[in-house]
Computed example of a mutant assay.
Amino acid sequence: MKKILLATVALVALGATVPALAADLAPRTYTKAPAYAPSPIYNWTGFYIGGHIGGAFAGNNSLTGSDGRFLGGIQGGADYQFATNWVLGVEAQYSWMTSNNNGVLFPGTGVGTLVSSNSNELGSVTGRLGYSFGPALLYAKGGYAFKDGDHISASIGGVPVAFTTDGNHHDGYTVGAGLEYMFAPNWSAKIEYQYYNFGSGTFLTGPAGLVGTRFTDDEHTVKAGLNYRFNWGSWGGPVVAKY
């Protein structure tokens, strides 16, 4: 009977203590789960326009000399993204170049015949195929190229001399490759290498040492550009879609 009485007293004391301890505990704080924010979806489908600057450098067998020239211009085109990461497009580009004051000296006429070629404008219409890595697009391009004519001149001791050449040096082809990066909604920047070739030619008549000489009419260019991209609505949605 004594043991039962002691057990009852202990239970009563415990029952009085537990509520007091519970009252001393701080209330539990509930926090809201962070909102779901998926990564941006980059879509290259759409039209674009932009501009570029860079440099042009003649090939080894060109008549424009070895010094580089500054160029700047505009471009526009359209891309279509398919099969998740592949991008197919077409682009038109036009560049203006600074004047060329250099040339190539051909021996055989005493002081030699100085021949130079000066073309101030380059253009191209190309297709391009690329593979996108999210905001980055690695691409290759190629197609038709043209320039503002064949401005070849020859002189001996500063005096112009007559000559003739063969070949059409107004139309040609171009190939290139580049990397474009979408750094903001509707904006992308690129850097690319592009090679222009307008064929080879031969001097048919002119001073001794010049007749029969062949040359190549080509340009190597490096450009940095900036594009503004327009959406295609239901075709591709926004260029950078965020949820």
Rank of each mutant, 00 (worst) to 15 (best):
K2W: 00
I4Y: 05
A7F: 01
A10Q: 11
A10M: 14
V12W: 00
T17Y: 04
V18Y: 00
P19N: 00
A22C: 10
A22W: 02
T29P: 00
A35M: 12
P38L: 04
P40Q: 06
Y42Q: 11
N43Y: 00
N43H: 06
N43M: 04
G50W: 02
G55I: 08
F57Q: 14
A58C: 06
T64S: 15
L71K: 13
G72W: 01
Q75V: 08
G76Y: 05
D79N: 11
Q81I: 03
T84L: 10
T84V: 09
E91G: 01
E91T: 15
Y94E: 11
S95V: 03
T98Y: 01
S99W: 06
S99R: 14
V104K: 06
V104S: 07
L105I: 00
P107Y: 04
V111Y: 02
L114N: 13
L114Q: 12
S116Y: 09
T126L: 11
G127E: 14
G130F: 08
G130P: 07
S132M: 04
F133W: 07
L137K: 02
L137W: 02
Y139K: 09
A140V: 13
F146V: 15
K147N: 15
D148G: 12
G149I: 14
V159M: 03
P160S: 14
F163L: 15
T165C: 10
G167W: 10
H169N: 04
H170N: 09
G172D: 01
Y173C: 07
Y173E: 14
A177R: 00
A177T: 09
F183E: 02
P185H: 06
A189V: 15
Q194H: 06
S200I: 13
T205Q: 08
T205N: 09
A208C: 08
V211N: 05
T213A: 14
R214L: 06
F215G: 10
T216Q: 09
E219C: 10
R229E: 02
F230S: 01
N231D: 01
W232H: 08
K242G: 04
